[in-house]
Design a protein around this nucleic acid. Sequence first.
DNA 1: AATGAATGAGTTTTCATTCAT
DNA 2: AATGAATGAAAACTCATTCAT
Lengths: 198, 198, 198, 198
Amino acid sequence: MLPMARTAGSHSDITGPRIEKAALRLIARHGFAAVSMRQIAADVGVQAGALYNYLPDKQTLLARLMVRHMEDLLDASADLSAGSPMQRLQDFVHFHIEQNLNRADEVFVAYMELRNLNADNFATVERLRNTYEAKLEDILAVGARDGTFTLADTKITTRAVIAMLNGVNTWFRDGGELSLESVQKIYWDLVRKSVTVF
Amino acid sequence: MLPMARTAGSHSDITGPRIEKAALRLIARHGFAAVSMRQIAADVGVQAGALYNYLPDKQTLLARLMVRHMEDLLDASADLSAGSPMQRLQDFVHFHIEQNLNRADEVFVAYMELRNLNADNFATVERLRNTYEAKLEDILAVGARDGTFTLADTKITTRAVIAMLNGVNTWFRDGGELSLESVQKIYWDLVRKSVTVF
Amino acid sequence: MLPMARTAGSHSDITGPRIEKAALRLIARHGFAAVSMRQIAADVGVQAGALYNYLPDKQTLLARLMVRHMEDLLDASADLSAGSPMQRLQDFVHFHIEQNLNRADEVFVAYMELRNLNADNFATVERLRNTYEAKLEDILAVGARDGTFTLADTKITTRAVIAMLNGVNTWFRDGGELSLESVQKIYWDLVRKSVTVF
Amino acid sequence: MLPMARTAGSHSDITGPRIEKAALRLIARHGFAAVSMRQIAADVGVQAGALYNYLPDKQTLLARLMVRHMEDLLDASADLSAGSPMQRLQDFVHFHIEQNLNRADEVFVAYMELRNLNADNFATVERLRNTYEAKLEDILAVGARDGTFTLADTKITTRAVIAMLNGVNTWFRDGGELSLESVQKIYWDLVRKSVTVF
DNA sequence: AATGAATGAGTTTTCATTCAT
DNA sequence: AATGAATGAAAACTCATTCAT
């Protein structure tokens, strides 16, 4: 007998992702501790018990969101490596801003909810984040070595640049006055100048 | 005539501040929603009910911590205004970093727990924060007008600088390798270059 | 087609009514404010949290009991209207006493706990009560017009009769010396004489 | 040394009565269980602890209010006994209505809060109430014996009359259309007719 | 006589999670 | 895959009462 076509009522292949989408949105808005499993379930349109067909517990849900985000970010950043340090830095700045704005909720949760991860999950996310930030650090280190950049401290500069770029998400609004491109231009200007001398 | 000594059994002048101190520390570590009134009370050494001799509810406790911090910051920043734009910018950078590091918990809570303020308290804190950030914006605006600084967008630059400076708190550890002074020097260097041309 | 049997483990069709029954009994004995949700739950044989599968809050529980009682009373009184004013009055007196004694807890709660209703629920219950009392008032008004009754004030007499009849519940005990019928006879005698002349 | 004149600040002789007045008013409006000692204290203008200089506990406060009311009622009713049964009954009806309206809060509390008395206090209040109601019963019994009244059941008639008269308090408003005298007249008419024949 | 601080037990309500169906 | 009923623990907050001063 052929496998039956999926009936309209079978949502098993769709409920899982919808849970994560709802959870992400709600946690970004209200915070992990302030969002209940019932709220997430209601947003999806199921009862709370149904969530547990897709995840073992609330903690794992949070960890999944954060890990998935970091992995997606790392995947997307895989193409960034080529070119001169200056070019690579510019690419990184543009890339980071675009990613941040395209995934504002993911980014927000990934920064705000670290405290709510248990030790294991925290370690996993930290490792991924460090891997990502190491990409910028590598660019700066190579550029410092070849004289492109002048840095007092590579590690600190890495963090300073990341912090500055992350700041965009606190004020940028889709459909506001500024296009993504103008924001990228402005921040690239700030970053470029801060790591070079004259 | 000297003020009469407080009655011996009265702890009112000691329990109140201890509640706020404990709350600040616990909220900074675990998040507002994740900290219970019982935990705070236990930290102070009283029963949960006793907290309500000092505050009407949990929300007000959070608002007080954040408002007090912003007011203290504004008070402390009152002396910053004199001198050339360049000097004023350097003073601001040094001041901001020092304040942030001296009041790491306050700063952390003030940024992380905005979501947990009700509408009124949020408005109050926002207003105070804007007043503070306007100080930096004023410096940049004056310096841009007189040619000291070259800025694509004063408002965005303000935010970018604040974001970069706030980043210090995510990694600086007292007693680590770096002194406050070296951190101030490094960040001042980054900021100065990012707002000038050559 | 017959309705499908409820799933075996589901107690929803049994717990809901049991909650209301327990609440009614406990509130009648101890008063709404003095009865805790835990007590009600214990009486039903579940944990307090389970109550909230059946009602949104304690206030609503009280309102439901009172509204349901008034609606049942109105439903049951629908058949009362026919006949002469004298006959209708006698029917009403008999009906009211019987209802009151059959639903002693409901009646008691409906009178004693009005203070504990919020404004909306109070208005609803008041409206229902007025609708019920209007039935007696109508009987008296018609009888006064056609000379059956002689009343100083229809409205006041309505209230006086209701008050007198309600008094039965304060002393009547099932299985006591008096049958329902003798009580009805005695009160009918008192009421009849009080509204007629000679 | 002579006793010092009471200083203006000494309220000891006035706080006690004020507590009972406040308690009576608040309990009449909200119910005993719903009124907190803090509310009563706030109404008086002291802290909750101060109440315990005047009463041992909340239960005793309630009992005092109810006992005092019943005793006052009994005292005031001491003059009622003379005359024919018909005259005595009329006097009782007039007296009861006037007392009820002059002491609406006391009466309301005395009826509504019986459930909240502990066993001992309940017994005391019951005894007093029975003593009071026995006065009416005596009038009816004497009048039944001498042919003034025709009663199916003296005890039940007593309760029916009391219940009817108590009903006045549920609707009478000071300054409304009706004077005390007209109310007394109307109810006396109802009562008289209900206990006589023709 | 009154305060203000505190307690310990209580309140209503919410929550993550389980599980039979 | 989903429900609905339930649990047990916990949440924020209130309360009557005590007591040193």
